[in-house]
Design a protein around this nucleic acid. Structure first.
Lengths: 221, 221
DNA sequence: TTATATTTTTAAGTGAGCTTAAATAATAAA
DNA sequence: TTTATTATTTAAGCTCACTTAAAAATATAA
């Protein structure tokens, strides 16, 4: 496995697949910003390598081997993000793209050393769990998208999608960060936007943004 | 400049060029382990990009722009080596190859942060100088290859070539490391091998190995 | 100086991962 | 169920950094 490109496909499949563990070629194409034809091509190769289960026109699934590769890439990615943020103090919104490159350029043994140096962190700076060297993924308490919460719900911010760095800059500006307590003050059915109280601030967020922020709900009394 | 391959050519030219700053295509080909034809191809592209001065059948030189790129790559390489060795405690002989990959996958701003975190080191673990962010290269006291020393010469080990990891493992086993004091006990003209005293040990080294170890000579009394 | 050897360049071709365009299969709507 | 729409695959072709083999230039030796 010397190939950056295959690694990207496996990570993408892992991250984008549905609850049944399946995914359609188109979704991969959109996500990696390449043509569907390129995806078909690569799926044949990944299938030949025993990394995905692929039959023409059917949903695609990772094999156990493909899953191990994908989890390992995600481990590398999240450890590098943690390092860049916690140790090098790089800006929050830049670490995703840098880690994206580094994950392809570091051996397992290097990443294990990094894990040790960071003292085996369980979550990355965006709140995503970091698989350990055996592929075990730490469990959060269950989270719910902010967009799914209703008026007067309270909770703690657990995860913010790192897909768009814009979002991260915006969130930081509004005082939204992992571990913050929030309360839903209002929700508009009309456009799905929510108003929350975070710290001393009141912040309104569009449905799209709210669906990228995940919350651990407070226990019900 | 998104291209790993061009970066490799520039670093190689920088490292291998002669005292006049020139290099022959063949040397690049040998070093990168590719065909001379591939080198000709790439030289045309590098020349078109204004990175090397190239005319058919003539010696090759870096332009000022090419030099800046090369020095920047070397800065990245040596900072990553320092990090891997000093911080992650990776084995000495592995850091070169890991850094080789990382140097292509890290932005200037990431590497500047790394430099800061490492507290602006001046030399890497093999004793090579680390260019600063402006491309300035720290000066050692002048060094001489161990193979050039004569009987009874004394000095301090300043640099060990990191080209072959085998050499590094061997050197470590013999107690040879940066900063150690040595004395040349004997030198055989016959095969160029030298016997040195390092710490409490007496070690014999072939001419080839001795030519990869560089020494700061003691001041003459 | 001429002959020989070596180095470098040119020419033609390869594989990987992409592209666009056309063909085919699956899905959704009438 | 038929038709229209959308998703996927096939086919042909591109670019990049390489390869091998042959041709041309340069360097070395007789």
């Amino acid at each position: 496995m010397k190939n950056i490109s295959k690694e990207d496909y496996l990570s993408a499949i892992y991250k984008l697949r549905d609850d049944a563990g399946e995914i359609k070629p188109n979704l991969i194409a959109e996500n990696l910003e390449i043509s569907p034809a390129a995806v078909t091509d690569m799926l044949k190769k990944l299938s030949a390598d025993g990394l995905v289960q692929y039959r023409k026109y059917k949903g695609i699934k990772l094999t156990a081997k493909g899953e191990r590769f994908a989890v390992n890439m995600i481990r590398k990615h999240r450890l590098w993000e943690t390092f860049l943020y916690e140790v090098l103090k790089m800006p929050w919104e830049k670490i995703h793209d840098e880690a994206e490159k580094l994950e392809h350029s570091s051996s397992d043994s290097l990443v294990d050393k990094l894990d040790e140096f960071l003292n085996y962190p369980k979550f990355d700076p965006h709140g995503y769990p970091i698989p350990d060297k055996n592929g075990l993924i730490p469990k959060h308490k269950p989270v719910i998208a902010l967009s799914e919460m209703i008026k007067n719900d309270k909770g703690v911010i657990a995860r913010i999608s790192d897909f768009k760095s814009e979002l991260l800059v915006y969130a930081a500006k509004k005082g939204i960060s992992i571990g913050q307590k929030i309360t839903v003050k209002d929700k508009l059915e009309f456009d799905g936007s929510v108003t929350i109280i975070v710290g001393i601030n009141e912040v309104s967020l569009s449905r799209k943004i709210a669906s990228s922020i995940f919350i651990i709900l407070d226990e019900q009394k």
